[in-house]
Every structure is written in C-alpha cells, then in structure tokens.
Amino acid sequence: MEELTLAQAWENLVLLGPEIWQASLETALMLGIGLTAAILIGGPLGVWLYLAQPGQILANRFVAGVLGWLVNLVRSFPFIILMVSLVPLTRILVGSTIGPVAAAVPLSFAAIPYFARLVEQTLREVPRGVVEAAEAMGASPLEIVFKVLLREARAGLVASLTILTISFLSYSAVAGVVGGGGIGDLAIRYGYYRFQTEVMVAMVVLLVVVVQLIQFAGNRIAQKLDKR
C-alpha cells in the first residue's frame, strides 16, 4: 500500500511537471525584477545613506535623517500589507494586479530599502583608514566610492545580495498566494485546496534545494572576492 501511494504521488508530480516548470519560471521572473530594482536603486541608495552619515565625505544630517526615515518606513510594512497598499500603483504601472510581473512591483518596493540597509551596513565595515588614505591622495568622491569603498566591500556586498535573494524567495512565495503565481501559488492550489500533500512537500523540497544552491554560490563568490 505504501509503495502504491508513493508511486501515485510520483505519477501526480510527473503529470504536474509542466505546471511546476511554469511556476518556477514565474518565481524566477519575480525574483529577477525585484533583485534588479534592488541593485540599481537600493545599491546607490545604500551608498548615499552611508556617505551622508556624520564623518563621511558627503556628511549631511538632514539628508541622512530623511533617507533613513524613508527606508525604515517602507521596511516597517509587513509584505502582505505592502502588496495590498500598492495595488493602485501596481495597476497603473503594469495594468494588472495578477501575475508575476504585477507581484514584482511590491517585491521591488520591499527589496530596495532592504538592500539599501544591507549595503550601508556592509560599507560601515570598510576600514576608515583606507578612505582617509584615498582622501589624502586627492581622490574624488566618485573615485572613493567606486575604487575604494565598493572594491573593499565587494565580498560583503555579495553576501548581502545572497541574503536578500534568499529572503525574497520566501516573499515571492507569499506573493504567489495572493495571485502572483509561482511556486507559492502552485503549492497552495494543489497542496492545500486539493489536499495533494505530495505537491506541497515537493514545492518545499524544491525551495530548500534552491536556497542551498543560492547560499553555496554566494559563499563561493564572496570567498573568491575576499582578499583579506
């Protein structure tokens, strides 16, 4: 009986193969858009947050206070509430509130301040003496940012991006539950509503494997970039 149950469960998963593949692509699309927004907007925002702090080359208490307040404001929203509150904007931007592209809008809004804070904290670990040496040699602010700060912090930035990717993989599953598609949507539709436990288990195993691969790749890249 147990072998028959396992065989039937495997057969069900094989039949769902195309849907599992489609769900994986939808999750990858959501993550790709969210992470791209985080890198392109959250990265510079994090650098600005760091440079505006007292004692830094672009120190400005007002700017640091405003940026910090905005970042903390968005980060304080639970993701499910952020999704609901951004429904009107999502409809304006993509013309729909359903699907992976629509779900990527709140994902991006959540990822930008999250990554900005990670970048800021990573840059704080760069020895102050390295920056001071660059200043003494007459380096411009842009040269200090690109040739000193980002170069010295690159291993930490990769580690931060790895953390962000894994965290937002779970966020994308939540987005799937409320119409975003992806692995979370598939797990709920089949594993919960249709009582196909094998689908739920398979999706959990898939997510675990993906997380392990992301963490492994991130660790290896960070180790290669770390010259300490």
Rank of each mutant, 00 (worst) to 15 (best):
L150W: 04
L45R: 04
E26V: 00
A155T: 05
T165N: 00
E198R: 06
A136P: 00
K227S: 09
V199N: 02
L142K: 09
V105K: 01
V208W: 09
V84D: 04
A9T: 05
R124Y: 05
V209L: 13
R154A: 03
L207Y: 00
Q215E: 15
L40S: 10
G65F: 13
W10S: 06
G43H: 05
I166M: 11
L161H: 02
Q196H: 09
Q121N: 15
L16M: 15
L82A: 09
P127H: 07
F109T: 09
A153S: 07
L149H: 04
L35R: 12
T97Y: 09
R124N: 12
A28N: 02
L35E: 06
V66G: 01
I41C: 10
L89G: 00
I144G: 00
R61P: 00
L82H: 08
G138F: 12
G180T: 07
V87K: 03
A136F: 10
A222N: 07
T27E: 03
L149F: 08
I41D: 04
G179T: 14
L58M: 11
E11F: 10
S167K: 09
L213Q: 11
F62W: 15
A102M: 05
T197Q: 14
Y50V: 03
D226H: 12
G17S: 15
E2A: 15
A104F: 03
L89N: 01
T122C: 12
G181F: 11
D185Y: 03
Q22T: 13
L206F: 12
Y171H: 12
G55H: 07
V199Y: 03
A102R: 03
F195Q: 13
Y114H: 10
I112T: 06
V199R: 04
L207D: 01
G176F: 03
R189L: 13
E125A: 11
A9Y: 04
T165P: 00
N72P: 04
L157S: 07
Y192H: 14
A59Q: 15
G32A: 11
Q121H: 07
G17F: 15
G43M: 09
G99F: 08
P127Y: 05
F146Y: 13
V74F: 08
R61M: 05
Y50T: 01
L51M: 05
A59E: 14
L58R: 08
G156C: 08
E198C: 04
P18C: 09
E19N: 05
L4I: 14
M30F: 06
T197P: 01
I41W: 04
A153C: 08
T27R: 04
I92R: 10
F216I: 13
E198W: 06
A202H: 04
I80Q: 05
I41P: 08
V201H: 08
L16R: 07
G184D: 09
G95P: 00
E135Q: 13
